[in-house]
Design a protein around this nucleic acid. Structure first.
Lengths: 217, 217
DNA sequence: TTAGTTTTGACCAGTGCGGTCAACGGATGT
DNA sequence: ACATCCGTTGACCGCACTGGTCAAAACTAA
């Protein structure tokens, strides 16, 4: 990331970074094309290499920024003093949604870096970051959670996994639905019906996996 | 698929077809490489094009065979007279597993053809097949099922979706776990512990989503 | 006008693709 | 021994696209 780049209008910066996030998270490191990134960002190919040293450098800078975004706008805002699982789940979902609205591809970019880390040899420094982040993200829904509210006749770990998988399946299906409807930009308003559905699902899950005495609380 | 191909030892046929299934389902149509298919199958590149007219023809033949396999070894064997949801789920899972053992990549190839059908323009004839198949596969867990056994305080459709998503999430996680352990070939024996876990999960799901009076039956 | 900076796309070498084909080797019949 | 045939091969072709370069053009400011 050249100094020249930082001196740009922040609009142009975002256009370029978002284009790159999108390309990398859709295609992976190797299949991502700097040509497409430049075209999508609406700049010449030469300009891209004027701002960034090369493809690898661009990727590196993206990782840096993505970690910053995740830290600043997500991780730091999670309220770990809340011990109720479903409130925590709801809060983290809302935070993720907020991040998504401002940086639509940064989080999925991070996820891709984590999952397919083998396809791009991360330098050791980033590997450390990755391991650390994996731990933090893994504890989002477990740290300081009061699992005693979960019903006794199912192992807590099983309940936890079932909920995780249900939510993830719902998220995937919702992604499909949204892609079908061809909605591109999400205002808070356009997303309201989806949120209603999501909250209703959360209530159902609570009814299923919490002890009866916690269900109507 | 040339006549010459059909005249080969069935071992060689399988080696080639399986290699192609694997490549297409891992990489998709466009990214799949005939070079790699030939190399993995242990034959020269020229030989591949001696048996099949071209890449598209090979793909077409694979689709044909995959549909046949799915019909013959899976769909025809499903017992639709069984009305219990979890017995049906268990039966279809076991059938899929049996198919997987003989044709490890045929089913995932089919899934990929369905999901990413846009990335390869299917001819109309196949599109029809696809639509038909989509309907049949979609009804695997619904046709002639006695949904009255599901608990009343949760909409049946919600219960159904939650179970689907849970199973799918478990399947994905299991795939990851297996990939990590580096297991390549699965004997029935090597898979036994996984099956035990799976069945225990099914029981748990039954306890959750069935009315209490059906839980211990 | 001039000097300096930003931006561009034609261009380069390299890679991998789908597909071809002259040549090779082994079996068979004479 | 020779000729014929057929399954098989990998070097080879044209092509598409890649990451990266650079002289020239466009723009800005003095």
């Amino acid at each position: 990331m050249d100094d020249a780049f930082k001196a740009l209008d922040s609009d142009k910066q975002r256009r370029i970074l978002d284009s790159a996030y999108k390309e990398f998270s859709n295609k992976g490191y190797k299949q991502a094309s700097t040509n497409r990134i430049a075209k999508e960002a609406g700049i010449g190919k030469g300009t891209l290499f004027y701002y960034f040293t090369n493809k690898e450098g661009l990727f590196h800078d993206l990782v840096e920024e993505a970690f910053c975004i995740a830290d600043e706008f997500f991780l730091k805002k999670v309220d770990f003093s809340e011990t109720d699982f479903f409130i925590r789940l709801r809060q983290t979902s809302e935070l993720k949604w907020a991040v998504y609205q401002e940086h639509p591809h940064a989080l999925s970019f991070m996820a891709r870096v984590f999952i397919h880390s083998d396809e791009h040899n991360l330098p050791d420094k980033l590997l450390l970051k990755r391991t650390k982040a994996e731990h933090v993200w893994g504890s989002l829904l477990t740290k300081n959670i009061d699992f005693s509210k979960f019903r006794d006749d199912i192992p807590q770990e099983t309940s936890f996994n079932f909920i995780r998988w249900t939510i993830e399946g719902y998220r995937t299906e919702l992604e499909q639905r949204v892609k079908m409807e061809g909605i591109e930009v999400f205002t808070n308003q356009a997303f309201e019906p989806y949120y209603k559905e999501f909250y209703s699902y959360l209530d159902t899950l609570k009814k299923i996996y919490y002890k009866p005495e916690y269900t109507n609380g």
